[in-house]
Design a protein around this nucleic acid. Structure first.
Lengths: 110, 110
DNA sequence: CAACATACCTAGGCACCCGACATAAAGCAA
DNA sequence: TTGCTTTATGTCGGGTGCCTAGGTATGTTG
């Protein structure tokens, strides 16, 4: 059973996170809800994928985190883009579009 | 150094192969050249990815192979789509488009 | 005859996504 | 006060599948 409907393509999760955080700083849980919502309920981010991805991005210096308290008195770890993250977002977005364009060129060949 | 320029997204290689073979039966080497050409020199398929992918697809019954001899007297293993392969191509293509559409929806959010 | 292109293939490594699980605290209802 | 659901953070093992780096063989060309 190779892919199940919700499977993400490897490599795209980072881009998704960078883009979503570029719109607004969020904590992990909210981030996964936001991605689902922005994608029209198509893209589901598993927790087992999300947190490792966040640490990866943090280790690469693309995002940073701080602990915060919500209005409901919940401890949350809020992530925000760094300057390097904003630059990486553009690079990754362009790379995605080149790739997706190439895919569409192949798929569209009669 | 996570991704290098030529990296493919996991899962897309199968689709690429199915689509390319739907246009014309080809042997492995020719297939990789054809994918590169169709994609406008963007997508490079490594041999270390190609052959395992072909066996995977064959094991799933989506393609079949036969030995042939080219005009230059070379032994080549020609792959062609099966009926199941043609069906899988449509499913995978649709899945790709749903996914790519969702990605673009997220990336295009202002 | 050497070098290159064509053609097949394998092995090991590693990135990363997933499912399952663990933990905890807040909200709420019975 | 007990117990369920939701919110929230995280870990771990497994598996898929791409990559790099090889190996082998044969035809072509300088």
């Amino acid at each position: 059973m190779t892919h199940r409907k919700a499977d993400l393509l490897q490599g795209t999760l980072d881009l998704l996170i960078l883009k979503t955080l570029a719109l607004e700083s969020l904590h992990g849980w909210g981030l996964s809800k936001r991605i689902r919502q922005l994608s029209g309920e198509v893209l589901e981010v598993n927790q087992g994928s999300l947190y490792p991805a966040l640490y990866r991005l943090r280790d690469r210096g693309l995002i940073r985190s701080r602990w915060d308290i919500t209005e409901e008195d919940r401890r949350v770890k809020v992530y925000e883009l760094t300057r390097a993250g904003r630059e990486a977002l553009e690079v990754e977005r362009d790379r995605w579009r080149v790739f997706a364009g190439a895919m569409e060129r192949v798929l569209g060949t009669a």
